[in-house]
Nucleic acid binder design. Structure first.
Length: 604
DNA sequence: CCGGGCGTGT
DNA sequence: ACACGCC
């Protein structure tokens, strides 16, 4: 019976009002920073322990919590409550991040989508795993159940969530046996309930909730603020309309909410209040940005600002190096001291940076001293955009972040996508993606295929194409390789180079037309490019015309299939939002920045 | 003296 | 370029 219901294309249970088909776990590390320290040094386990950042105790172990020490308590207040509190500085996040990544990687072993939320929480969608096990396992729930079921839900969700609770337990035991961390887990049919039910039995335990208890459970939450995604502002707005508790929100009519919020927001709020949430568990991958910031009392002189940025940059480059991707965009953030606004009003400026600032040597991202100087000059130029140096200034925070990365794109649905992946597309667009024509290019030529390579394109698994795979000859000059590829050239996926014969024809045609033009990688025509004087000059010279960039052969462009034309246009118009920028379905659904094109326009 | 760091939506 | 939200 379960199967028949599950097979319905809408995946909605026929017998009940809502869809209970998924099984979602929320797994939360107990007092994460403190646990990392205690695993590292077990002697700390018996002591009240607090982790300090600046003047704040950001978390503490349960020993310390017995003294009433809370999250984000001031150090002075915490010491009043517990003079013997052992304090460790937790400002260096390296080890926490490493532990967090180990946990994430362990979760991937279950072959289910895992979404990381901060360093100490993960969602995992075990729906498929449950469907495999639900037939065979004896259905004994592990851990706590929020409320006993009155009648069995006809869609079978009770059995599934019971099996999910077994999987949650299995995962938690594995995290403990392999890494030594205790966790809490929430088991539910959606993310909202899994997260909210998770902390019901803390620490080191798990709780399951069945869909039929969702509304009642939600109504036990005191403030609307306790619903994830309802933050300070939304709470203020709701309270100003006398909607204070989740129960209030459940009872207020959708029409009333729509007068306060956008229609979408109103519907979402109402659903959340009833414990409904259809958002998927999105597979997490590499972060969208890597940044650091430093806050302080006051900085008012330029040289000090420079020192702050320089120090931040040094630390940031370590992180970027660990990440392995080449940054192509840099953002400078600062906070001005402001008597009026107590809290952080940040301002920021960002710009594209040339990937050639970085180099990849023997598989490792590196940067020369000259490159670092170049970055510092870019940083200070962005700083100048934010601060008028002829007037006094008082800063309380500076931050640096790399916000876009040049990445191997592995999308599968788009023709442009795989064109983008290999050198031939660079030719199609009269572009040459070699990261740098000068000193840094040799690392790639060593690892990339030789100038003429015959590649077998048989790959049934990557794309279920109705067409028979065929052999294709492609011409590679240079190709920018990801860290992994440089380390292991054999990993170069032929699947990314697929072209059918018709497409190949066009590519060849375009390549021929482009042959007589001398091409040099250059900064983008985008107005926010700011790299150095040379690239700035070229920015003015390059540029788009109405429909497509001037460096594209119009005639050939027009002869391309409509679909492809549309895609290319969309991409030129808005590189970060086009289909091209999307990664494969396995990874995050969110669009990923695609900036390669922006860097390479014809050299005059 | 409200930390530090990330993602999303407009 | 934000404002806003989460841990």
């Amino acid at each position: 019976m379960d199967d028949a219901i599950m097979q319905s294309s809408s995946s909605t249970c026929s017998y009940v009002d809502k869809d209970h088909s998924r099984s979602i776990l929320h797994i939360d590390l107990d007092c994460f920073y403190a646990q990392v320290e205690m695993v590292k040094n077990p002697k700390l386990r018996s002591l009240p322990l607090g982790i300090q950042q600046k003047n704040i105790v950001v978390t503490s172990n349960y020993e310390a919590r017995n003294y009433g020490i809370q999250k984000c308590m001031l150090v002075t207040d915490a010491l009043k409550l517990c003079p013997n509190l052992k304090l460790l500085n937790g400002e260096d996040l390296h080890e926490y991040r490493a532990a967090s990544n180990k946990i994430f990687e362990l979760l991937l072993c279950w072959k289910c989508p895992v979404e990381k939320l901060g360093m100490d929480e993960n969602f995992i969608d075990v729906t498929k795993l449950v469907l495999d096990k639900v037939k065979t396992d004896n259905h004994t729930l592990v851990g706590h159940l929020y409320n006993k079921p009155s009648t069995d839900c006809p869609c079978g969700c009770h059995s599934r969530l019971t099996v999910a609770s077994q999987i949650a337990n299995e995962i938690r035991e594995k995290i403990y046996s392999d890494l030594g961390f205790t966790t809490c887990a929430g088991v539910a049919h959606n993310k909202l309930l899994a997260k909210l039910i998770c902390p019901l039995h803390k620490p080191n335990n798990q709780t399951t909730i069945f869909p039929e208890h969702a509304v009642e459970f939600m109504s036990t939450l005191q403030s609307v603020r306790s619903i994830p995604s309802i933050g300070l502002k939304t709470t203020d707005t709701l309270i100003s309309h006398k909607i204070i508790t989740v129960s209030d929100l459940q009872q207020v009519s959708l029409d009333v909410l729509k007068k306060i919020f956008s229609s979408d927001m109103a519907v979402r709020l109402k659903s959340l209040s009833l414990g409904e949430d259809t958002t998927p568990v999105k597979q997490s991958g590499k972060p969208q940005s890597i940044g650091l910031e430093d806050s302080f009392k006051t900085v008012s002189v330029k040289s000090e600002v420079e020192d702050k940025f320089s120090a931040l940059l040094q630390r940031l480059l370590v992180l970027v190096r660990e990440d392995g991707r080449i940054p192509v965009s840099l953002r400078v953030t600062l906070r001005k001291r402001d008597a009026k606004r107590l809290s952080s009003h940040r301002e920021s400026r960002q710009c594209q940076i040339s990937p050639s600032i970085f180099t990849i040597a023997s598989g490792t991202l590196t940067i020369t001293d000259a490159g670092q100087h170049k970055l510092m000059s870019i940083i200070m130029r962005l700083f100048n955009k934010l601060i008028d140096l002829s007037k006094p200034f008082h800063l309380t925070l500076v931050g640096l972040a790399f916000t876009k990365f040049q990445e191997r794109m592995t999308g599968r649905s788009s023709i442009v996508n795989y064109l983008m992946n290999d050198i031939s597309v660079q030719s199609v667009l009269n572009l040459q993606n070699d990261c740098d024509t000068s000193a840094t290019s040799m690392d790639y030529s060593a690892a990339s295929p030789s100038s003429s390579t015959t590649t077998d394109l048989s790959d049934g698994e990557v794309e279920p194409s109705p067409k028979k795979p065929k052999k294709v000859t492609w011409i590679a000059k240079r190709r920018c390789l990801s860290k992994e590829e440089v380390a292991s050239p054999s990993k170069l996926k032929v699947s990314e180079l697929r072209l059918n014969s018709k497409e190949l024809e066009k590519v060849s045609e375009l390549r021929l037309n482009s042959r007589d033009r001398s091409l040099t990688p250059r900064a983008s025509p985008a107005k926010d490019v700011l790299s150095d004087a040379d690239t700035m000059k070229d920015v003015a010279e390059g540029g788009h015309c109405d429909d497509c960039p001037s460096y594209v052969d119009k005639e050939v462009f027009n002869s391309l299939p409509d679909e492809m034309q549309q895609e290319l246009k969309a991409m030129w118009k808005n590189p970060s939002s086009s289909e091209v920028a999307r990664s494969s379905s396995r990874m995050t659904n969110k669009s990923k920045p695609n900036t390669i094109l922006k860097y390479f326009v014809p050299h005059k």
